[in-house]
Amino acid sequence: MAQATDINSPQLWRDVFPKLADDGHKYNRGYAVIFAGGLQGTGAARLAARGALRIGAGLVTIAVPASALMAHAGRLPDALMVRRVDSDAGPAALLDDRRINALCIGPAYGVGEDTVGAVRTIAAQGRAMVLDADVFTSFASAADDLADILKTSQGHAVLTPHAGEFTRLFADKFANMSPHESAAAAASHMDAVIVLKGPETVIAAPDGRITINSNAPPDLATAGSGDVLSGFITGLLAQDMPAYEAACAGVWLHGKAGNIAGAGLIADDLPEVIRGPLSTLRKAPSPGIGFGDWS
C-alpha cells in the first residue's frame, strides 16, 4: 500500500548524500559505465557521462561500438574514458571489472532486439543501473518481460521514462490512474524505482514511498536534458547512494541546475552549473541548515 507522498527537498536524502573522504580515491568514489549506441545520437551518451562525472563519480567510461569510437574520442572531455565494446559478449566482458558499480543504458542506444539483449546481459550483473529512452521503446508493451529481467537487480534499478515512454512500456496496464498512482503501481510491478518525468516529476519506490518534485523550470524541456538526468542518477548510484534516494537527489539537483542555468539553457549547461548546488550540499552542517529557500 502506498505511503504518504513527500515533496522533494534535500531534507529527504541529505543524510545519505555522498560525502568525500579525506583519504578517498577515484575507485572508492565509484566507477560508472554509460553504454552508447552507434553514430546517430552520440551526444546523448556523452551528456549522460558528463552528468555522472560532474555529480561526483570517481571514474566514468563510455562503452561504444567500433563504428562510433572516433566520434566519441574526438569530442569527449579528457576526464571521460572511452572503451570499445562490440558484439553480444562485449558488455559482459567489460563488466568483468568488478570495480564498475553503476550502469546506464538507453540514451540513443538504439531500438530493437540488440537493446533487449544488452539489458538482459547488464541486468544479470546485479549492479545498480539506470534504464532510459530507447530501452522503453525496445520493450514496448512488454513490461512483464522487462520485470522478469530486473529480478536480478534486487531493487537497485532506476527507470526514468517520460509520460510517452511510460505509456509505450506499460500500454494500458495502469490506465485511468493519476501520475503518482501509476508510478507507484509500476514501481511495485517492476521491483524498481520509477522516475516518471514531467512538470512535476514523480519518484516512486517498490516499497510504496512516493516523492513529488516540483522545482524544475519549463526551460528543462529541451533535447538532452533527460540524458543528463540519467547521468546524475547513475553518478549518485556509483557513489553507493540507495536507488530511491539517488533518484530523488538526481531529480532535485537537475531542477536546481535548470533554475541556475535559466532562460536559453541547453542540456550541455546542466553538468557545468551543478557545481554550486553540490558545494552548498557539502558545506551545509545539517539537513535543515544552510539551504535557504531550496524548494
Rank of each mutant, 00 (worst) to 15 (best):
D15L: 02
S295F: 04
A257R: 03
A68S: 14
H162W: 14
G37M: 06
S230Q: 00
R29C: 14
S153A: 14
R84Q: 14
A223D: 07
A184D: 09
G110C: 02
D293P: 09
D88M: 08
L281I: 05
G126A: 00
L146T: 13
P10L: 00
T61Y: 02
S295G: 06
Q40N: 10
E200H: 11
V116S: 11
D134K: 02
P10K: 00
M129T: 08
P65C: 03
P10S: 01
D227M: 04
I194G: 07
V273C: 11
D240C: 06
R46A: 15
A4C: 15
A216G: 15
L131T: 08
D148Y: 01
L270R: 05
R275T: 15
T121D: 12
P107S: 12
I34P: 01
D293H: 11
Y31T: 00
F170C: 10
K151D: 14
A171Q: 02
T222R: 06
A223F: 08
S153V: 13
A175H: 15
G37E: 04
T115G: 01
F170G: 11
L131G: 09
A2C: 10
G264F: 10
R120G: 15
T167S: 03
R209E: 05
M190V: 09
G37Y: 00
G38R: 05
T152E: 09
A44V: 06
A36V: 10
L169H: 01
